[in-house]
Nucleic acid binder design. Structure first.
Lengths: 136, 136
DNA sequence: TTACTAAATTGTAATTATTACAATTTTACA
DNA sequence: TGTAAAATTGTAATAATTACAATTTAGTAA
């Protein structure tokens, strides 16, 4: 837990137990969860937790680049801790998101268009290996 | 307009005036509009148009790959007609989406992960040239 | 052209993720 | 330990999208 305290401190964020457990949850569960999933899972051991707090914590962590929001599904935001450039695959059938470890060779080119680049997302959509196996 | 009739026919979609105007709108307005923008703009000259119809038309066109939904903003879907692989830049300040003409050299690699790849999206977020000029 | 069937359109109501807000509690610091 | 600013909480509001039932229309075959 000290690990997460350090991260918050480094980013001048106030240390609260709620931010710590949200951060820990994302660090230990690389399932690219929704805000609601995070809330439901944490609520079990933290009955006083509010869903708004989860949203607030996610916004605060995002502002400082500690976590990132993934917009791949189109209907809900999914969150993860970005460790190194990678892409995301979204299964249209089961909704799962999996990391695709490819880095983008275009990154340097992006700034040549005159816009200030802050985030780069590589999204791939289709049917995942496991759903393919199960058949339709 | 005959152009759009052909597209619908080729895809075994029933020809309706509503689908035609939605398709024409997207073809002539490369602004990556929301469903609501499309609806509002078309409503002016087509007072009987319903918003649900716009949604239905978009779903039908999307199913056949005639148009694509862009999930870059995270809060709403934006639509465009994909002509050739390109990426999208989203301005966090003004909400504008602009095409970035880069093709992704990773495309071949994507299928090596065992998933069935149906769509690839390259999203870049930041502040656009014009908003940078205006300053904060 | 006419009649028929399946599909599309329409308007309204429901759903769902997210945000706004005011009251209360807590953190960080003097 | 006291205090001010910030965070948490619960509820209410918002906004995009979907569900649904009634009506209309497109496509086809007689």
């Amino acid at each position: 837990m000290e690990k997460y305290v350090k991260i918050l401190k480094k980013n001048d964020l106030k240390i609260t137990s709620q931010r710590l457990i949200v951060l820990q949850y994302l660090d230990e569960n690389c399932i690219h969860p929704t805000a609601d999933q995070i809330y439901s899972d944490l609520k079990i051991n933290n009955p006083s937790l509010s869903k708004t707090t989860v949203y607030n914590a996610l916004v605060a962590l995002q502002k400082h680049g500690i976590i990132q929001a993934i917009t791949i599904s189109g209907s809900e935001l999914r969150y993860d801790i970005p460790h190194g450039m990678h892409h995301h695959f979204y299964c249209k059938k089961c909704g799962k998101i999996v990391d695709i470890d490819i880095s983008c060779p275009n990154i340097k080119k992006m700034s040549e268009f005159g816009h200030k680049v802050e985030e780069i997302h590589g999204y791939i959509k289709g049917i995942c290996k496991e759903c393919l196996k199960k058949g339709s």
